[in-house]
């Protein structure tokens, strides 16, 4: 069992450092901007000046997690679908517009996907296992799976999370490469997991990823197989948090988490936060399934249980 010790999100919702994010969650509109905490409280000014939104979100959410748990992280595993888009685009502009030999290096340095996890380790002076995963809409799930594996291997305080940032350029791909009516948004969610119960109220029972899924029927089969392998069935689910709304029929409560996150490919990380806090506020509910079918050719499934539930 992988107990959720603490979880923090910086999103377009008022979600950072809240007892229960559901107190203020509401469906997003295109007008909702990213709600940024005062980053200066978390990041030294000398470092902050260079950092793009995704880095600020990632470092701050991680640091807020570290402050809430007694032990230093002994594993850091981060997922990002498109990585540091602002700096990537900035450097693309530089190489196409600066004619001279001398190019500003900062955007390049901060364009690599592992800048997020690297900066977290640098900021926390953490020498532990440090991994960056990127698998489109399953980026959070593959990072989470690595974190769970670390706990199986004996790690005690595992940081897992995901971050993505929106840039205006994405709008150009709407309707052709990115089929969504949701606003493009930014978000970061980081969680501390541990094999010990601690002060947690819920645990991740299992997480699976499936690439190259074909049809709706295949998805239903995969979901049922996954639940079966984890000793439960759809009748045991109190809530499904789904990227779309294809599986309303499977559980008594259903929420499309993307209504609350907007569109970024690692938004399922925020669904984990929604699940954890749902169990805080709904004392009778026990089991939540996150169905990440944001992209049609892949599926991520994450099962979250209240601590009293036998895994």
């Amino acid at each position: 069992m992988y107990f959720i010790q603490h979880i923090e999100s910086i999103t377009h919702q008022n979600s950072f450092q809240k007892e229960n994010i559901w107190d203020e969650l509401k469906p997003l509109t295109a007008e909702n901007q990213l709600i940024s905490p005062d980053y200066k409280n978390y990041i030294p000014v000398a470092a902050l000046r260079r950092l793009s939104t995704i880095l600020r979100m990632g470092i701050t959410a991680s640091k807020a997690c570290q402050e809430k748990v007694p032990n230093e992280f002994d594993s850091i595993s981060v997922g990002t679908a498109l990585g540091c888009l602002t700096d990537t685009e900035k450097f693309l502009v530089t190489i196409n517009t600066v004619s001279g030999d001398v190019l500003s290096p900062t955007a390049f340095i901060q364009s690599t996907h592992n800048t997020i996890s690297g900066q977290i380790s640098l900021d926390l002076k953490n020498h532990a296992y440090n991994m960056t995963h990127t698998q489109n809409a399953l980026s959070f799930e593959v990072a989470l799976k690595d974190g769970l594996l670390c706990i199986d291997e004996g790690k005690k305080s595992v940081l897992v999370g995901a971050a993505d940032e929106a840039i205006p350029f994405l709008e150009r791909l709407r309707g052709s490469l990115i089929l969504t009516h949701l606003p493009f948004t930014s978000g970061a969610t980081f969680a501390v997991l541990s094999g010990e119960k601690g002060n947690s109220i819920a645990f991740v029972q299992a997480c699976e990823v499936y690439f190259s899924t074909k049809s709706q029927e295949t998805l239903v089969t995969l979901i049922n197989q996954f639940l079966d392998a984890n000793n439960c069935s759809s009748g045991d689910l109190d809530l499904i948090l789904e990227a779309r709304s294809d599986f309303r029929f499977l559980a008594k409560n259903h929420i499309s988490f993307t209504d609350y996150t907007g569109f970024y490919q690692s938004a399922s990380a925020f669904a984990l936060h929604m699940a954890n806090d749902w169990l805080i506020g709904n004392a009778d509910d026990k089991r939540i399934l996150i169905v990440n079918n944001l992209e049609s050719n892949k599926l991520g499934l994450t099962l979250i249980n209240r601590n009293e539930v036998e895994a």
Binding site: A46, D101, V102, S104, P105, I109
Partner: peptide, 23 residues
């Protein structure tokens, strides 16, 4: 001082090149 580092040193090189034409 200002607490600058090796990345800033590279940015200084850019500054000298773009503002003063010094390589």
């Amino acid at each position: 001082g200002l607490g600058l580092d090796s990345i800033d040193a590279l940015e200084f090189i850019v500054l000298l090149d773009s503002n003063y034409g010094i390589k």
